[in-house]
Design a protein around this nucleic acid. Structure first.
Lengths: 146, 146
DNA sequence: ATACGTGCAAAGTATTTGCAAACGG
DNA sequence: CCGTTTGCAAATACTTTGCACGTAT
């Protein structure tokens, strides 16, 4: 379960030298999540655990993790960045944003994944990463909007 | 060529009552573009034409146009929103962001489009809109990074 | 004439940066 | 010990809001 967190911490330690407590805390918290978190959400989560961190450190650490490819930054269009562990090669999910309540839920879809894989060659262009964001009303909001 | 601009202006005039000069200017400028523009880009473009508009009006007008479905808001992950005419039903393109220079270029891909169309039924969930953003190095940057 | 549209300036909010203190190796 | 990491506070940048004036109908 914490395999991503361990691998990430080990790899970061190799690249840079010191490994501070705040980075470990952020990575471990991210490793426990299954979907994306906002920077503020990570900050709140760490504070809730009693960890005294600064929001700036959270941003700085996330920036490093994104730059080194361990974390994927996701932007669903509300102006707030979200972050989640990047599982290289492995399972891959995308996000569905509810137009009503703004909730973000994950989904997987094999045909979509295949179409995305072929893109790189069809475009004759390197594609390092892809984000797909769908918008629509979630079942709760559809019912409420009747 | 200006068919989108005309249709949009006409439809806006039906929904709301007055039709001010700033909105017309924004819609006409958008209609002349083929890919996405930032709010600041639209503002600069209008100023360059000698139109004295406020950046706040640009944002307000874009918000209306997005809400009414005439303009699509695109977020490529750099924290700056981009806007482009929405061509309902018609051709549909997505965006490729260069990791090197940050430039945004458009692309179309039929297999991807088909996978996206099927998503709504496969997920058992209404999907009103979708954004796909690819990241990778553009040919210029690939060459420069050798 | 009247209410919506617009421009300017000020406020708001997510994120970044400067800097001194804490900390790891 | 030395240099990276961190927390705080201040700064930045995009976007939104308040308000008075202009403008279309």
């Amino acid at each position: 379960m914490s395999t991503w967190a361990d691998a990430t911490l080990a790899a970061m330690q190799t690249k840079r030298h010191r490994s501070g407590g705040a980075r470990r805390a952020v990575v471990e918290l991210l490793g426990r999540q299954d979907c994306c978190l906002t920077a503020q959400g990570i900050f709140d989560g760490l504070r809730a655990e009693g960890r005294r961190v600064g929001i700036a450190s959270v941003y700085r650490i996330l920036e490093q993790l994104v730059r080194d490819g361990f974390v994927q930054r996701i932007d669903v269009g509300d102006g707030i960045s979200r972050y989640e562990p990047a599982h290289p090669g492995g399972e891959h999910h995308h996000h569905l944003v509810c137009d009503g309540c703004g909730r973000v839920v994950a989904f997987e879809d094999q045909p979509l994944e295949q179409a995305l894989e072929g893109l790189s060659t069809r475009l004759g262009h390197e594609v390092a990463a892809h984000d797909v964001v769908l918008r629509g009303e979630c079942s709760d909001c559809l019912r409420a909007a009747s």
